[in-house]
Amino acid sequence: MSMEETKVKIKLNSTISPIDGEKENYEMWLDGTLVKKSGKTYLRYVEQLDEKEIRTTVKMGNEQALILRGGGVKMRLPFNNIQEEIGEYDTQFGSLPIITKTKHLSHIHNEDSSMSGKFNVQYDLIISGQSVGKYTLEIHYSEV
Rank of each mutant, 00 (worst) to 15 (best):
G72M: 06
G72T: 06
V73F: 06
V73H: 08
V73E: 07
V73P: 05
V73N: 08
K74D: 04
K74Y: 12
M75E: 07
M75A: 01
M75V: 03
M75I: 03
R76V: 02
R76L: 01
L77V: 01
L77G: 00
L77H: 05
L77I: 04
L77F: 08
L77Y: 05
P78Y: 13
P78C: 11
F79N: 03
N80Q: 10
N81S: 15
Q83A: 15
G87T: 01
E88S: 11
E88C: 04
Y89R: 03
Y89G: 00
D90C: 00
D90F: 01
T91I: 05
T91V: 03
Q92R: 12
Q92V: 13
F93C: 11
F93M: 13
G94S: 04
G94R: 02
G94N: 03
L96M: 11
L96W: 09
L96C: 01
I98K: 11
I98F: 07
I99G: 01
I99A: 01
K101C: 08
K101I: 01
K101R: 15
T102E: 05
K103Q: 14
K103R: 13
K103M: 13
H104V: 12
L105E: 04
L105S: 05
L105N: 05
S106L: 02
S106C: 10
S106T: 10
H107D: 04
I108H: 09
I108M: 05
H109F: 09
H109R: 08
H109M: 04
N110C: 03
E111Y: 15
E111V: 09
E111L: 11
S113I: 15
S113F: 15
S113Q: 13
S114Y: 12
S114D: 07
M115H: 14
K118R: 14
F119R: 06
F119A: 02
F119W: 03
F119N: 04
N120R: 02
Q122P: 04
D124T: 09
D124N: 14
L125T: 02
L125D: 02
L125F: 08
L125W: 09
L125E: 03
I126E: 03
I126A: 00
I126W: 09
I126S: 00
I126Q: 02
S128T: 12
S128P: 11
S128F: 14
Q130R: 14
Q130L: 11
V132N: 07
V132D: 05
G133S: 03
G133T: 07
G133C: 05
K134L: 06
K134E: 10
K134Q: 08
Y135F: 14
Y135D: 00
Y135T: 00
T136D: 00
T136P: 02
T136Q: 14
L137V: 10
E138D: 04
E138N: 09
E138Y: 01
I139T: 06
H140P: 01
H140M: 13
